[in-house]
């Protein structure tokens, strides 16, 4: 019965509008029930595979043609420069094209300490970059303030902007930066590395999971719960703001 209805709605012989949502819904339901077969099944697979494959392809293209912004902050920038040199050759991964304008760049490497006077500038550059964009925080200074625990330096750039990858070191060697960049590529491909937790069979030791396993002390559990609440609240506030189209100050 349903099959007939489907056929009537969208006969196979005629070209159909792929945006006909109702047709696709019915077909997907049939598929889940297991009574979709023959040309209908093939059609469904062809239609459903394309978008996911497309998303993968776009991710592949993005990950392999990143344009980093030319933006050096301190001593780490020297290592960032040598990353582009023939010896380390970031061109192997398609990111040798340093753009001098944030409008053309999609990756910002925070290469050095961010002073409190520089922070608004960095933030503005980040805001000027077009989506999608990624940030690598390179070295101890931009990740945590490093040795500059003083009046002039922001203690970690993630205080004022989102950071995707932190690379430890003072400075990190260019190899480390390239490695961090490879991790970022994995993230962009939608296949992030779960890192040491997987290698050491430590999945479930994340802070939020430790509270659940009961290995955390009550104090810690309280702390983790509060941190989680905080981040959830922050996330939803951000989402609401972006829905309302408000801009970040």
């Amino acid at each position: 019965m349903r099959r007939e209805k489907l056929r009537a709605l969208a006969p196979l012989e005629e070209p159909r509008s792929p945006t006909d949502l109702r047709v696709r819904q019915l077909r997907a339901r049939d598929l889940l029930r297991g009574d979709l077969e023959g040309p209908d099944l093939e059609q469904h697979v062809a239609e459903a595979t394309l978008p996911t494959t497309m998303a993968k392809t776009i991710g592949w293209a993005r990950a392999n043609s990143i344009f980093p912004a030319t933006f050096g902050l301190a001593c780490c920038a020297i290592e960032m420069m040598s990353m582009v040199s023939p010896r380390y050759d970031i061109a192997r991964f398609g990111a040798e094209n340093m753009r001098a304008s944030p409008r053309q760049a999609d990756m910002l490497i925070l290469s050095g300490r961010v002073s409190i006077k520089m922070a608004p500038v960095v933030r503005r550059i980040y805001d000027q970059m077009l989506e999608p964009k990624w940030v690598i925080s390179m070295g101890a200074c931009s990740s945590s303030g490093g040795m500059f625990a003083n009046y002039a330096v922001v203690q970690g750039a993630d205080k004022f902007m989102p950071v995707d990858i932190h690379i430890p070191g003072c400075p990190p060697r260019p190899e480390a930066l390239v490695y961090g960049f490879n991790k970022l590529q994995r993230m962009i491909l939608g296949n992030p590395d779960s890192g040491w937790r997987r290698r050491y069979k430590a999945i479930g030791t994340e802070e939020w999971a430790r509270a659940a396993t009961g290995t955390a002390s009550p104090d810690e559990a309280e702390a983790y719960a509060a941190a989680r609440e905080l981040s959830v609240a922050y996330d939803s506030a951000r989402a609401q703001e972006s829905r309302q189209g408000r801009r970040d100050a």
Binding site: I116, K117, G145, F148, A149, Y151, A152, V153, Q155
Partner: peptide, 23 residues
């Protein structure tokens, strides 16, 4: 000239707290 114009305090004085914060 070097610190932000709205900065409060004289940071190189010896009684100025070293600053920073636990990370």
């Amino acid at each position: 000239i070097l610190m932000p114009e709205d900065y409060v305090g004289w940071p190189q004085r010896r009684d100025f707290p070293v600053g920073g914060e636990p990370v």
